[in-house]
Design a protein around this nucleic acid. Structure first.
Lengths: 214, 214
DNA sequence: TAGCGTACTGAACATGCGTTCAGCCAGCGA
DNA sequence: TCGCTGGCTGAACGCATGTTCAGTACGCTA
């Protein structure tokens, strides 16, 4: 799984070109553009994949497989926040994958949905362990908290990159790392010290809506 | 400014129809769809606006003007988190506006960018006041924290709605309110109690990267 | 009433898209 | 050498899009 080298099936070369093109230009990119990137006629890509929709599905599947692989290799470091960091600092060849995932998050595609569900499932486990070890505070609704934390982290990253995209869509990795640098202090501060000084808002909410873990 | 009633300029009717259509279907919606919604020929919309791009710009301008108006009317309640709440709970006629803003955030349009910049600017003021009054903890880098908080709140909302869109794109308002209900406890908990139990990660970061407000 | 400008339309045009299809050409077994 | 299979292409089709244009209908001013 090391390199996207040149001695691949034509089908695989087209698929890789499509992942790259979709990552750079979004899923509105034309079949003709993908074909040109792969050095191939438009007719050939539908010969191999049947339709643009099925090409998209094949890319989704490929990227999901890659994610599963990458996560297995990085199980140790992959806490909720650090997984993104690992992805971002991966070799440059993996940047297209990160870009692809972000695009899929942006338009609600299958990869995006599966990606956050996986992240949430993992994060549930990590935070449960952290709570057991006394590193994290327990929550009144663990599942809701994990979901909130993951959606916040991912959503903030996605929104930041959307509003202020990297001039060269090539290195999403660099942009992600820059974002993490900017946000590190604020997020760590919030996670260790909180934001408010009093418990009043929390108490008010608990009095108003008594049964969280419904 | 009360109602989108029927006795408006045709130009205004087309503009309103376009805002609605763009909010529901995204900016990829066709001129013909907008024209049909407005009960008008496609040729007339370009007669009034010149091109689709200029129609988009006119919608942006209109929505931005509405935002400024709405904020002036709700200055008191408009803290970072509560502004979204105010927007969401506004009259049903305002839901298209909310949907439009979300669409613009989703594709990095001018309205989206302006919207978060306004929110950040306002939040800076509110949190400064809150810190002065002893309600919020001071931060080692106030501007970065505000930016992080706003991007997190907005990004989580946007991501949630993107991955799990309301079946009827009509009521974005209801979906936003549902989201806020789900996330309220977790966010208040995090804001008042934090997540970690020790200061170690924060101390480590401060030792590693000493000069935050650069 | 005549003239004129403005709102408005139907039909058409150019373009780019996804997709189809007849056929080319290299490789290979008989 | 023949014939055939499969990767591959160029040209075309049908369609939807944004945009143009000639022309119609209506309301105003003279």
């Amino acid at each position: 799984m090391r390199s996207a080298s040149e001695d691949l099936t034509t089908r695989a070369r087209i698929r890789d070109a499509a992942v790259l093109r979709f990552a750079r230009s979004g899923f509105g990119a034309s079949l003709r553009a993908v074909a040109a990137d792969a050095g191939v006629s438009p007719a050939l890509v539908v010969h191999h994949f049947g339709s643009k929709e099925r090409l998209h599905a094949a890319c989704d599947e490929h990227v999901l497989a890659w994610i599963r692989e990458a996560k297995r290799e990085n199980l140790a470091a992959a806490t909720s926040g650090r997984l993104v960091e690992v992805l971002a600092s991966a070799e440059a060849q993996f940047a297209p994958m990160v870009g692809y995932v972000l695009r899929s998050l942006q338009d609600g595609g299958a990869v995006g949905r599966a990606f956050v569900e996986q992240m949430i499932a993992d994060a549930e486990q990590y935070t449960a362990e952290a709570v057991e070890q006394g590193l994290a505070r327990p929550s009144r609704d663990e599942k809701a908290r994990v979901r909130y934390l993951v959606l916040s982290a991912l959503g903030a990253l996605l929104l930041s990159l959307t509003l202020d995209p990297p001039s060269d869509p090539q290195d999403v990795g660099a942009a992600v790392r820059r974002y993490l640098d900017q946000m590190a202090l604020a997020s760590i501060e919030l996670y260790t010290e909180g934001f408010l000084t009093t418990h009043r808002m929390l108490d008010d909410y608990l009095a108003y809506a008594p049964d969280p873990p419904g």
